[in-house]
């Protein structure tokens, strides 16, 4: 088994041994449950989860930093990072393993929301289309993957979990505001650049059931870029 998989497995299981893991699962399930009951489950309405996915994507904003904040920051604070990076594992595997463990946990956070799909399926006539639902979940995983990569970088930059959370959260909020709001005072080229990295636009496409290769590549390549930066940040700990 590769070292990254070993680290990912430990990381994934550790979320279930810590209160923070269960709190994140419970809060996400409760909040998306409210969104589902209030917005999606409407008598006489169209059986679609489009609004659910749009709001679920917003809820990723506080959830993903809560998951990623401890990945490397806690290892550095507690001293376990020293034992980890002096074992025969490359720094790239450490970052990848940590990230994959968090991503797997994010999938576990999303899993309870499948109960909403099942509920809608049972009570609707005609039944909802499967395509947009699959695409919606894919968008949440891709979006969460990008957010977690940003969080992994923040966690590699500091030993303080709270600071890692805040760095990730405010960076993501700034990115969403910049790419989703029309700002007349910004020059055209900058408007175009912000539009090119617009997250909301892509999530909305997924929610319609349109799985664009370009959008998927955007999320994956963005995550890869932030993971590469996190790798650099971890390496730089040796020189700092």
């Amino acid at each position: 088994m590769s070292a990254a998989a070993v680290i990912a497995g430990r990381e994934f299981r550790s979320f279930f041994r810590l209160p923070v893991g269960w709190v994140v699962i419970a809060l996400y399930a409760a909040l998306t449950g409210v969104v589902f009951a209030a917005g999606t489950l409407q008598p006489g309405g169209v059986a679609t989860m489009r609004d659910f996915f749009a709001l679920a994507a917003w809820l990723m904003l506080p959830v993903t930093p809560a998951v990623s904040m401890r990945l490397l920051a806690e290892e550095a604070r507690s001293g376990t990072l020293e034992a980890l990076v002096t074992s025969p594992v490359s720094d790239a595997h450490v970052v990848l393993g940590k990230y994959l463990g968090a991503l797997a946990f994010l999938v576990a956070v999303l899993a309870p929301t499948l109960a909403f799909v099942a509920t809608l399926w049972l009570v609707s006539d005609p039944r909802p289309e499967a395509g947009p639902i699959v695409a919606g979940y894919l968008s949440l995983v891709l979006l969460g993957g990008l957010y977690l990569a940003v969080g992994t970088l923040a966690s590699a930059l500091t030993n303080n979990q709270t600071l890692a959370f805040l760095l990730t959260f405010f960076f993501l909020v700034a990115l969403l505001l910049a790419s989703g709001t029309r700002m007349d005072f910004v020059p055209d080229w900058a408007q175009h650049a912000f539009y090119a990295v617009s997250i909301q636009r892509r999530v909305a496409e997924f929610a319609k059931g349109i799985v664009g290769l370009g959008d998927a590549v955007f999320f994956i390549s963005g995550a890869v870029c932030f993971l590469a930066l996190a790798w650099g940040a971890l390496e730089s700990r040796r020189w700092r």
Partner: peptide, 18 residues
């Protein structure tokens, strides 16, 4: 080199939840 090394850091940092 690391494969051939056993290292006990100061204060033996471990994962408390395991």
């Amino acid at each position: 080199a690391r494969r051939n090394l056993g290292y006990l850091p100061e204060a033996a940092p471990l994962y408390p939840e395991m």
